[in-house]
Design a binder for these strands. Structure first.
Lengths: 152, 152
DNA sequence: GACGTAAAGCTGTACAGTACAGATAAATCA
DNA sequence: TGATTTATCTGTACTGTACAGCTTTACGTC
Protein backbone atom coordinates (compact mmCIF):
# COMPACT_ATOMS: atom_id res chain seq x y z
CA UNK A 1 0.00 0.00 0.00
CA UNK A 2 1.37 3.39 -0.94
CA UNK A 3 1.58 6.03 1.79
CA UNK A 4 -1.18 8.07 0.23
CA UNK A 5 -3.35 5.00 -0.11
CA UNK A 6 -3.16 4.38 3.62
CA UNK A 7 -4.32 7.89 4.34
CA UNK A 8 -7.21 7.60 1.94
CA UNK A 9 -8.20 4.23 3.30
CA UNK A 10 -8.04 5.42 6.89
CA UNK A 11 -10.10 8.45 6.05
CA UNK A 12 -12.74 6.46 4.20
CA UNK A 13 -12.89 3.76 6.85
CA UNK A 14 -13.23 6.23 9.70
CA UNK A 15 -16.12 7.86 7.83
CA UNK A 16 -17.80 4.50 7.35
CA UNK A 17 -17.16 3.46 10.94
CA UNK A 18 -18.91 6.61 12.06
CA UNK A 19 -21.87 5.74 9.90
CA UNK A 20 -22.11 2.13 11.04
CA UNK A 21 -21.55 2.85 14.69
CA UNK A 22 -24.22 5.46 14.62
CA UNK A 23 -26.53 2.82 13.27
CA UNK A 24 -25.62 0.25 15.86
CA UNK A 25 -25.89 2.79 18.62
CA UNK A 26 -29.46 3.63 17.70
CA UNK A 27 -30.68 0.19 16.87
CA UNK A 28 -31.75 -1.36 20.09
CA UNK A 29 -29.15 0.22 22.32
CA UNK A 30 -31.75 0.82 24.97
CA UNK A 31 -33.10 -2.67 24.55
CA UNK A 32 -29.64 -3.91 25.50
CA UNK A 33 -29.72 -1.85 28.68
CA UNK A 34 -27.22 0.74 27.48
CA UNK A 35 -27.29 4.37 28.43
CA UNK A 36 -27.18 7.15 25.84
CA UNK A 37 -23.94 7.90 24.10
CA UNK A 38 -23.84 11.40 25.51
CA UNK A 39 -24.38 10.20 29.08
CA UNK A 40 -21.89 7.42 28.51
CA UNK A 41 -19.16 9.83 27.52
CA UNK A 42 -19.89 12.24 30.38
CA UNK A 43 -19.89 9.44 32.92
CA UNK A 44 -16.63 8.21 31.45
CA UNK A 45 -15.04 11.56 32.17
CA UNK A 46 -16.44 11.63 35.70
CA UNK A 47 -15.34 8.07 36.41
CA UNK A 48 -11.84 8.91 35.35
CA UNK A 49 -11.40 12.42 36.71
CA UNK A 50 -13.84 12.57 39.63
CA UNK A 51 -16.16 15.54 40.16
CA UNK A 52 -15.73 17.94 37.27
CA UNK A 53 -17.10 21.32 36.27
CA UNK A 54 -19.37 21.72 33.28
CA UNK A 55 -16.58 23.47 31.45
CA UNK A 56 -14.15 20.73 32.40
CA UNK A 57 -16.41 18.09 30.91
CA UNK A 58 -16.94 20.20 27.81
CA UNK A 59 -13.21 20.53 27.34
CA UNK A 60 -12.52 16.84 27.89
CA UNK A 61 -15.11 15.90 25.27
CA UNK A 62 -14.51 18.85 22.98
CA UNK A 63 -18.13 19.92 23.32
CA UNK A 64 -19.72 23.32 23.68
CA UNK A 65 -20.45 24.06 27.35
CA UNK A 66 -24.10 24.73 26.55
CA UNK A 67 -24.38 21.21 25.22
CA UNK A 68 -22.89 19.78 28.40
CA UNK A 69 -25.21 21.89 30.54
CA UNK A 70 -28.18 20.20 28.93
CA UNK A 71 -26.66 16.77 29.07
CA UNK A 72 -25.93 16.95 32.77
CA UNK A 73 -29.39 18.35 33.46
CA UNK A 74 -30.88 15.33 31.73
CA UNK A 75 -28.50 13.04 33.57
CA UNK A 76 -29.46 14.59 36.89
CA UNK A 77 -33.09 13.87 36.07
CA UNK A 78 -32.08 10.30 35.33
CA UNK A 79 -30.28 10.03 38.66
CA UNK A 80 -26.88 9.46 37.08
CA UNK A 81 -25.19 12.57 38.47
CA UNK A 82 -25.71 15.24 41.09
CA UNK A 83 -24.85 18.89 40.58
CA UNK A 84 -23.66 21.24 43.31
CA UNK A 85 -22.14 24.68 43.40
CA UNK A 86 -18.41 24.66 44.04
CA UNK A 87 -17.76 25.86 47.60
CA UNK A 88 -14.82 28.00 46.57
CA UNK A 89 -16.26 29.47 43.37
CA UNK A 90 -19.97 30.11 43.15
CA UNK A 91 -19.91 30.25 39.39
CA UNK A 92 -18.85 26.66 39.03
CA UNK A 93 -21.25 23.75 38.91
CA UNK A 94 -19.49 20.62 40.04
CA UNK A 95 -20.88 17.44 38.56
CA UNK A 96 -20.50 14.23 40.54
CA UNK A 97 -21.49 10.75 39.39
CA UNK A 98 -23.92 8.84 41.58
CA UNK A 99 -23.47 5.19 42.44
CA UNK A 100 -26.32 4.52 40.08
CA UNK A 101 -24.60 6.45 37.31
CA UNK A 102 -21.34 4.58 37.73
CA UNK A 103 -23.19 1.28 37.80
CA UNK A 104 -24.98 2.21 34.56
CA UNK A 105 -21.64 3.11 33.00
CA UNK A 106 -20.13 -0.20 33.96
CA UNK A 107 -23.16 -2.08 32.69
CA UNK A 108 -22.94 -0.30 29.35
CA UNK A 109 -19.24 -0.95 29.08
CA UNK A 110 -19.80 -4.63 29.67
CA UNK A 111 -22.59 -4.84 27.13
CA UNK A 112 -20.50 -3.10 24.53
CA UNK A 113 -17.38 -5.09 25.23
CA UNK A 114 -19.45 -8.24 24.79
CA UNK A 115 -20.79 -6.85 21.52
CA UNK A 116 -17.31 -6.13 20.28
CA UNK A 117 -16.35 -9.60 21.36
CA UNK A 118 -18.95 -10.95 18.96
CA UNK A 119 -17.95 -8.65 16.12
CA UNK A 120 -14.25 -9.41 16.53
CA UNK A 121 -14.87 -13.09 16.99
CA UNK A 122 -12.37 -14.30 14.42
CA UNK A 123 -9.62 -11.84 15.27
CA UNK A 124 -6.29 -12.86 16.69
CA UNK A 125 -5.23 -11.44 20.05
CA UNK A 126 -2.47 -9.66 18.20
CA UNK A 127 -4.81 -7.90 15.80
CA UNK A 128 -7.10 -6.92 18.64
CA UNK A 129 -4.20 -5.52 20.59
CA UNK A 130 -2.93 -3.66 17.53
CA UNK A 131 -6.31 -2.13 16.83
CA UNK A 132 -6.69 -1.02 20.45
CA UNK A 133 -3.23 0.52 20.41
CA UNK A 134 -3.60 2.26 17.07
CA UNK A 135 -7.04 3.65 17.83
CA UNK A 136 -5.82 5.02 21.14
CA UNK A 137 -2.92 6.70 19.42
CA UNK A 138 -5.14 7.98 16.63
CA UNK A 139 -7.47 9.63 19.11
CA UNK A 140 -4.63 11.19 21.01
CA UNK A 141 -3.24 12.62 17.79
CA UNK A 142 -6.62 13.81 16.54
CA UNK A 143 -7.17 15.52 19.87
CA UNK A 144 -3.74 17.13 19.83
CA UNK A 145 -4.20 18.26 16.27
CA UNK A 146 -7.62 19.71 16.99
CA UNK A 147 -6.38 21.67 19.98
CA UNK A 148 -3.36 22.97 18.11
CA UNK A 149 -5.45 24.10 15.17
CA UNK A 150 -8.42 25.41 17.10
CA UNK A 151 -10.50 22.83 15.25
CA UNK A 152 -10.35 25.02 12.20
CA UNK B 1 -2.96 -6.38 27.36
CA UNK B 2 -5.55 -8.96 28.40
CA UNK B 3 -8.12 -10.03 25.80
CA UNK B 4 -10.91 -8.28 27.62
CA UNK B 5 -8.83 -5.14 27.96
CA UNK B 6 -8.46 -4.94 24.20
CA UNK B 7 -12.19 -5.11 23.72
CA UNK B 8 -12.80 -2.43 26.30
CA UNK B 9 -10.14 -0.21 24.84
CA UNK B 10 -11.44 -0.65 21.31
CA UNK B 11 -14.95 0.11 22.43
CA UNK B 12 -13.95 3.21 24.35
CA UNK B 13 -11.69 4.47 21.61
CA UNK B 14 -14.29 4.00 18.91
CA UNK B 15 -16.74 5.99 21.02
CA UNK B 16 -14.21 8.77 21.47
CA UNK B 17 -13.24 8.71 17.81
CA UNK B 18 -16.89 9.24 16.95
CA UNK B 19 -17.01 12.21 19.25
CA UNK B 20 -13.82 13.81 17.99
CA UNK B 21 -14.51 13.19 14.34
CA UNK B 22 -17.91 14.72 14.68
CA UNK B 23 -16.24 17.77 16.07
CA UNK B 24 -13.66 17.98 13.32
CA UNK B 25 -16.28 17.44 10.70
CA UNK B 26 -18.33 20.40 11.86
CA UNK B 27 -15.52 22.76 12.66
CA UNK B 28 -14.66 24.48 9.46
CA UNK B 29 -15.37 21.59 7.14
CA UNK B 30 -17.08 23.89 4.71
CA UNK B 31 -14.31 26.41 5.06
CA UNK B 32 -11.94 23.73 3.79
CA UNK B 33 -14.11 23.18 0.74
CA UNK B 34 -15.51 19.86 1.87
CA UNK B 35 -18.98 18.63 1.11
CA UNK B 36 -21.34 17.36 3.81
CA UNK B 37 -20.75 14.00 5.35
CA UNK B 38 -24.05 12.67 4.09
CA UNK B 39 -23.36 13.79 0.51
CA UNK B 40 -19.83 12.48 0.80
CA UNK B 41 -21.00 9.00 1.69
CA UNK B 42 -23.70 8.93 -0.99
CA UNK B 43 -21.27 10.10 -3.66
CA UNK B 44 -18.83 7.46 -2.47
CA UNK B 45 -21.41 4.78 -3.16
CA UNK B 46 -22.22 6.25 -6.59
CA UNK B 47 -18.56 6.58 -7.51
CA UNK B 48 -17.98 2.95 -6.67
CA UNK B 49 -21.17 1.32 -7.92
CA UNK B 50 -22.40 3.70 -10.63
CA UNK B 51 -26.04 4.78 -10.88
CA UNK B 52 -27.93 3.33 -7.94
CA UNK B 53 -31.52 3.29 -6.70
CA UNK B 54 -32.51 5.10 -3.54
CA UNK B 55 -33.01 1.78 -1.84
CA UNK B 56 -29.64 0.59 -3.06
CA UNK B 57 -27.92 3.58 -1.53
CA UNK B 58 -29.85 3.12 1.70
CA UNK B 59 -28.76 -0.49 1.90
CA UNK B 60 -25.12 0.28 1.15
CA UNK B 61 -25.01 2.88 3.90
CA UNK B 62 -27.38 1.11 6.29
CA UNK B 63 -29.73 4.09 6.22
CA UNK B 64 -33.50 4.34 6.11
CA UNK B 65 -34.70 4.94 2.53
CA UNK B 66 -36.60 8.04 3.63
CA UNK B 67 -33.34 9.52 4.83
CA UNK B 68 -31.68 8.83 1.50
CA UNK B 69 -34.64 10.32 -0.36
CA UNK B 70 -34.04 13.61 1.38
CA UNK B 71 -30.31 13.49 0.97
CA UNK B 72 -30.46 12.93 -2.76
CA UNK B 73 -33.08 15.65 -3.14
CA UNK B 74 -30.70 18.08 -1.45
CA UNK B 75 -27.82 16.81 -3.55
CA UNK B 76 -29.84 17.30 -6.71
CA UNK B 77 -30.44 20.90 -5.67
CA UNK B 78 -26.70 21.23 -5.15
CA UNK B 79 -26.01 19.84 -8.61
CA UNK B 80 -24.14 16.80 -7.31
CA UNK B 81 -26.51 14.15 -8.67
CA UNK B 82 -29.33 13.78 -11.13
CA UNK B 83 -32.39 11.61 -10.54
CA UNK B 84 -34.29 9.78 -13.24
CA UNK B 85 -36.94 7.10 -13.31
CA UNK B 86 -35.60 3.69 -14.21
CA UNK B 87 -36.68 2.83 -17.75
CA UNK B 88 -37.51 -0.76 -16.86
CA UNK B 89 -39.18 -0.13 -13.49
CA UNK B 90 -41.17 3.03 -12.98
CA UNK B 91 -41.01 2.72 -9.21
CA UNK B 92 -37.27 3.06 -9.11
CA UNK B 93 -35.46 6.39 -8.95
CA UNK B 94 -31.98 5.97 -10.31
CA UNK B 95 -29.44 8.37 -8.88
CA UNK B 96 -26.45 9.29 -11.01
CA UNK B 97 -23.51 11.46 -9.94
CA UNK B 98 -22.77 14.53 -12.02
CA UNK B 99 -19.26 15.51 -13.07
CA UNK B 100 -19.52 18.27 -10.54
CA UNK B 101 -20.51 15.83 -7.83
CA UNK B 102 -17.62 13.51 -8.55
CA UNK B 103 -15.22 16.44 -8.63
CA UNK B 104 -16.52 17.60 -5.24
CA UNK B 105 -16.04 14.09 -3.89
CA UNK B 106 -12.48 13.94 -5.10
CA UNK B 107 -11.75 17.38 -3.69
CA UNK B 108 -13.10 16.37 -0.31
CA UNK B 109 -11.12 13.16 -0.33
CA UNK B 110 -7.96 15.06 -1.04
CA UNK B 111 -8.61 17.62 1.69
CA UNK B 112 -9.30 14.90 4.19
CA UNK B 113 -6.34 12.78 3.19
CA UNK B 114 -4.15 15.83 3.64
CA UNK B 115 -5.71 16.41 7.05
CA UNK B 116 -5.03 12.84 8.08
CA UNK B 117 -1.52 13.28 6.78
CA UNK B 118 -1.05 16.07 9.29
CA UNK B 119 -2.64 14.18 12.16
CA UNK B 120 -0.62 11.03 11.45
CA UNK B 121 2.54 12.98 10.86
CA UNK B 122 4.75 11.01 13.22
CA UNK B 123 3.41 7.58 12.30
CA UNK B 124 5.50 4.92 10.61
CA UNK B 125 4.34 3.58 7.27
CA UNK B 126 3.82 0.27 9.00
CA UNK B 127 1.49 1.68 11.64
CA UNK B 128 -0.46 3.58 9.00
CA UNK B 129 -0.81 0.47 6.92
CA UNK B 130 -1.88 -1.55 9.96
CA UNK B 131 -4.49 0.99 10.95
CA UNK B 132 -5.90 1.09 7.42
CA UNK B 133 -6.05 -2.68 7.30
CA UNK B 134 -7.58 -3.14 10.74
CA UNK B 135 -10.18 -0.42 10.27
CA UNK B 136 -11.23 -1.91 6.96
CA UNK B 137 -11.62 -5.29 8.56
CA UNK B 138 -13.43 -3.84 11.54
CA UNK B 139 -15.98 -2.17 9.28
CA UNK B 140 -16.51 -5.30 7.28
CA UNK B 141 -17.13 -7.27 10.47
CA UNK B 142 -19.36 -4.61 11.98
CA UNK B 143 -21.39 -4.60 8.78
CA UNK B 144 -21.62 -8.37 8.67
CA UNK B 145 -22.59 -8.51 12.31
CA UNK B 146 -25.25 -5.84 11.86
CA UNK B 147 -26.82 -7.59 8.90
CA UNK B 148 -26.78 -10.94 10.63
CA UNK B 149 -28.40 -9.56 13.76
CA UNK B 150 -30.86 -7.21 12.10
CA UNK B 151 -29.08 -4.40 13.94
CA UNK B 152 -30.82 -5.42 17.11
C1' DG C 1 -56.92 -8.78 -18.31
C1' DA C 2 -58.49 -7.84 -13.32
C1' DC C 3 -57.48 -8.05 -8.55
C1' DG C 4 -54.83 -8.57 -4.57
C1' DT C 5 -50.15 -8.18 -2.78
C1' DA C 6 -45.58 -6.43 -2.76
C1' DA C 7 -42.05 -3.00 -3.62
C1' DA C 8 -40.02 1.72 -4.18
C1' DG C 9 -40.00 6.01 -2.92
C1' DC C 10 -41.98 10.24 -0.89
C1' DT C 11 -44.13 13.09 2.95
C1' DG C 12 -45.29 14.09 7.73
C1' DT C 13 -43.46 14.03 12.03
C1' DA C 14 -40.39 13.47 15.94
C1' DC C 15 -36.12 13.23 18.33
C1' DA C 16 -30.95 13.31 19.58
C1' DG C 17 -27.08 15.90 19.39
C1' DT C 18 -25.01 19.75 18.55
C1' DA C 19 -23.43 24.92 18.06
C1' DC C 20 -23.82 29.90 18.40
C1' DA C 21 -25.52 34.17 20.43
C1' DG C 22 -27.06 36.37 24.23
C1' DA C 23 -28.38 36.66 29.31
C1' DT C 24 -27.10 36.16 34.15
C1' DA C 25 -24.37 35.68 38.15
C1' DA C 26 -19.96 35.35 40.48
C1' DA C 27 -15.12 36.45 40.75
C1' DT C 28 -11.15 39.32 39.96
C1' DC C 29 -8.48 43.25 39.05
C1' DA C 30 -7.06 48.17 38.52
C1' DT D 1 -15.79 50.48 43.44
C1' DG D 2 -16.55 49.85 38.68
C1' DA D 3 -14.99 47.30 34.60
C1' DT D 4 -13.79 43.04 32.86
C1' DT D 5 -13.56 38.20 32.77
C1' DT D 6 -15.33 33.62 33.63
C1' DA D 7 -18.79 29.86 34.27
C1' DT D 8 -23.08 28.54 33.28
C1' DC D 9 -27.67 28.62 31.50
C1' DT D 10 -31.42 29.83 27.98
C1' DG D 11 -33.21 30.70 23.39
C1' DT D 12 -32.90 29.22 18.94
C1' DA D 13 -31.68 26.75 14.82
C1' DC D 14 -29.80 23.12 12.05
C1' DT D 15 -28.15 18.25 10.65
C1' DG D 16 -28.87 13.64 10.57
C1' DT D 17 -31.67 10.23 11.43
C1' DA D 18 -35.91 6.84 12.03
C1' DC D 19 -40.72 5.34 11.82
C1' DA D 20 -45.48 5.42 10.12
C1' DG D 21 -48.35 6.14 6.50
C1' DC D 22 -49.36 7.38 1.54
C1' DT D 23 -49.02 6.95 -3.60
C1' DT D 24 -47.54 4.86 -7.63
C1' DT D 25 -45.90 1.00 -10.14
C1' DA D 26 -45.04 -3.88 -10.79
C1' DC D 27 -46.03 -8.76 -10.36
C1' DG D 28 -48.47 -13.12 -9.79
C1' DT D 29 -52.67 -15.89 -10.06
C1' DC D 30 -56.62 -16.96 -11.90
Amino acid sequence: MQPDDSLRTIEAQVAMLLRLSDRTRRAGARARGEIERSAYLVLGVLAQDGPTSVNGIADALRLDPSTVTRQVLAMEQAGQVVRAADASDGRVTLVRPTEEGLAALERTREVRARLYGEVLDGWSAEDRGDLARLLTRLNADVDTWGRAHGDR
